[in-house]
Design a protein around this nucleic acid. Structure first.
Lengths: 198, 198
DNA sequence: TCCTCATGTGAATCTATATTCACATCATAA
DNA sequence: TTATGATGTGAATATAGATTCACATGAGGA
């Protein structure tokens, strides 16, 4: 028999493992058997801790949301000023993508139609939460004078999200051949010119 | 019995229908039974014209690719100058998304991991083809002097793709509430400032 | 007109997964 | 030490969906 674990710890472990699997195969390729195996258990054991497949995906999304939001908040706290916060955030996204972390994939495929309605609306909320956090940083930038006041913060926040999204696709498709950090550095210059003072 | 049709016409019809279904439900939710019904046939009839599900998806991607590329080429031909070509292309993307056309969805979910390897590499090629067409327009812009020469065309092309991608997500999630044409107009100003002079 | 092939149909079949269930085993509290 | 509830296991079961197959039918050429 495998190592026993109380259900709270097991849920946590499985949610993280599920997120990793989602990163590799997407929700389409995700299945209970692989999840169970990845934590050294048998498929039926998953049902000791989750109501079913959707419940697992829901928990994985919670993990995802916490990680992403933490990433934004950390960048905001650590940087000296709002623009540097966005730059830091962008480079950290790139690093995560390079290391194959789960965050990037989900961010990119969040929009997949089909699938469970509740799951979709959850990913929608997560994305909006992300964007509104970035939007807040943009507003900070306007207060500090780094960002032009005629820039619409919501628009700039969506543009920021767009800096990384196509790069995620290419990275996923081309792997190492696509130097995402280098791309991000170049596109950051464009973004700064777009929102900053000349 | 349903209307008979020769296999070439039927394949074409089914490929288009498949693309519409993909737009609604994604590849995860796409199934042969619904496809058959949407053209007034019975599931097994699909196999008269396609080898199987993957073959259908492949054909749908061909339709998708042709439409997208045509969109870029048309914008390039119709506009007076490269920057206006990009603006026209962007607004047409927005229109397509508003009308619920299939193009936007696939563009957005193209990166979904999992799934058939051949299909993935096909979507990758399509995306790269799209980006390199946009890249060519950017180069034109540099030649004509509208785009700064220190801008990397590949980077700008990816940024351009990023203008529309997050908007697709929001549109998909929020529907009518998200005014994508208005957003696109605002983000275009940012893009022009990023790549243009002054 | 009659034949034959291409196309359409409905009923199987096959397969991958999720899910359930009866049973086993371990931790721990009394 | 023993009883009990929580966790893990392996063998069913259930189901959705793709795929196959034998048969039907209609259009067009001999």
């Amino acid at each position: 028999m495998s190592q026993r674990m109380n259900t709270e710890a097991r849920r946590e472990q499985m949610a993280r493992a599920a997120l990793d699997l989602l990163a590799e195969r997407g929700s389409e390729g995700f299945n209970i058997a692989d999840l169970a195996e990845s934590v050294g258990l048998v498929p039926s054991a998953v049902y000791r801790h989750f109501e079913g497949r959707e419940d697992v995906l829901d928990a994985a999304l919670d993990v995802f949301r916490d990680r992403v939001y933490r990433l934004v908040d950390a960048a905001r706290n650590e940087a000296e000023n709002p623009l540097m916060a966005l730059e830091l955030l962008l480079t950290r996204h790139a690093k995560l993508i390079e290391s194959g972390g789960a965050v990037p994939y989900i961010m990119a495929s969040m929009n997949a139609p089909g699938g469970h309605a509740a799951r979709r609306s959850k990913t929608e909320r997560i994305f909006r939460g992300y964007v509104s956090r970035v939007e807040a940083v943009v507003r900070d930038g306007q207060v500090s004078g780094q960002v032009r006041s005629d820039v619409d913060p919501a628009t700039a926040a969506l543009l920021f999200a767009g800096l990384i999204q196509p790069a995620i696709q290419l990275r996923h498709a081309e792997g190492e051949r696509f130097d995402i950090s280098a791309h991000v550095a170049r596109v950051w210059d464009l973004f700064r010119r777009a929102v900053g003072h000349d």
